[in-house]
Design a protein around this nucleic acid. Structure first.
Length: 398
DNA sequence: TCTGGGGTCCTAGGACCC
DNA sequence: TCTGGGGTCCTAGGACCC
């Protein structure tokens, strides 16, 4: 199908999103090195930085302390999600105007399949340019777009187009487009894989494409064949609408100073259980697996998990399981001070409205539980006690 | 230099079952 | 008495992404 090969997969990415938003409300920051960090404390890391800051070597995920050494004169700001969030929603709304097939890949980026939208809005390039125009007009910040016949190449293209650009990779020229770039520019090749590849003398994506598949399989196992295909710009993964359902929910806390007090650690765990379960409730999910994460100085991380035979929903249950896992792991590690503690749940299922033995229903849950029971046993199955009495004995009892 | 917080996916070994 | 092969679930860790 020749038509399927036309570049109709877009990757759209907001440029330095958090920093762009800060510049939007404080225009005097434009042109300056600006760093937005998750926190500005002793263990903060860089979230986003302006292109001016990047000239000093500052990068995302870098410790703020290191950034300050590289560029003390930069403006350092704590991220403000409540301010960025409406812009993120508006961004995704704009994208959905062009096709229902929008797959969000975070707050500031998404994939679109515009195959079938061409009659209305023009080809991939025209749509990309229109999106760029509208994001600037309606939100006030710039974005970059990659257009190609698959999501892998479009992602690399949007990165290459940054900032404020658009690149189209014609069908058939994917491998040629990728070849001169560093292997690290290929999604799914991180620091670790790039290091191993470097040891093999492989620097560019073209180098990687030139290595026989058998050699890659020997070195990377099952991963090897996929690596080779990606280097050639081959990727069949379709773009799907929506983000899919969550597979896990978690909260974690890094302490400014390593925490030795058990009561503090338990209190943090409790608050994490409450926040995790609030998320579960909001999405009407239950969980069977509870995982506790601990990090000890200098940077030693472990996880411990437990799977319940019954779905868990209540913060008290999740906290109880978490505390058990924590106590055991902490004891095994000699009650050392803790750098990070985290609590997560997985094995998620849609919540059923069935009552379990010994469970009580609070007012909030009641409507859902009643609806579930009526669905299973019929509308007459559940009555208010007062109603039953009235029927049996007439109004006002006997 | 000294490493956040929220996720996804993959692997490998062991238990258990047929 | 020694031992198959496959499937599924669980646990732990790690690479990777934004």
């Amino acid at each position: 199908m020749a038509s399927r090969r036309t570049p109709s997969i877009l990757h759209v990415d907001l440029d330095a999103f958090f920093v762009s938003m800060e510049v939007l409300r404080r225009p005097e920051l434009r042109g300056l090195p600006v760093v937005v960090a998750g926190g500005l404390g002793p263990r903060g890391v860089v979230n986003t930085c302006s292109y001016e800051a990047r000239r000093f070597g500052i990068r995302s995920a870098m410790p703020v302390s290191q950034a300050r050494r590289l560029c003390p004169q930069a403006v350092y700001l704590a991220s403000d999600w409540h301010y960025y969030s409406p812009a993120s929603k508006q961004f995704h709304r704009i994208l959905r105007d062009y096709t229902p097939v929008v797959e969000p890949a975070g707050a500031d980026e998404a994939y679109l399949d515009v195959h079938g939208s061409e009659l209305l809005y023009g080809d991939g390039e025209a749509i990309g340019q229109d999106i760029r125009r509208r994001v600037l007009a309606e939100i006030g910040i710039t974005c970059s777009v990659g257009v190609s016949s698959n999501r892998l190449v479009s992602k690399v293209a949007s990165d290459a187009a940054k900032p404020d650009g658009l690149i189209v990779v014609p069908a058939g020229s994917e491998a040629q487009f990728l070849a001169p770039r560093q292997v690290r520019d290929l999604p799914a090749i991180g620091a670790r894989t790039a290091e191993v590849l470097g040891g093999m003398g492989i620097r560019t994506i073209g180098d990687l494409a030139g290595v026989p598949v058998s050699v890659l399989q020997e070195r990377f196992g099952k991963h090897g064949a996929g690596l080779h295909a990606r280097a050639l710009g081959i990727n069949e993964t379709p773009v799907t609408a929506g983000r899919g359902t969550a597979r896990s929910v978690s909260r974690e806390t890094t302490f400014g100073r390593d925490e030795p007090r058990p009561e503090r650690l338990r209190a943090v765990l409790r608050s994490q259980a409450e926040r995790v379960c609030a998320d579960l409730e909001r999405h009407a999910l239950s969980a069977r697996t509870v995982t506790v994460k601990l990090r000890f100085p200098p940077f030693e991380t472990l996880t411990r998990s437990w799977t319940s035979s019954q779905p868990l929903e209540l913060a008290a249950e999740v906290f109880e399981a978490g505390v058990r896992l924590f106590e055991r792991a902490w004891r095994e590690n000699g009650y050392r001070p803790v750098r990070l503690i985290g609590l997560g749940v997985s094995n998620l299922r849609e919540r059923s409205n069935q009552l379990r033995l010994g469970e009580t229903v609070d007012e909030r849950q009641l409507p859902g539980v009643l609806a579930g029971l009526r669905e299973r046993f019929g509308d007459e199955a559940i009555q208010r006690a007062a109603e039953l009495q009235r029927r049996r004995y007439g109004p006002k009892g006997r």
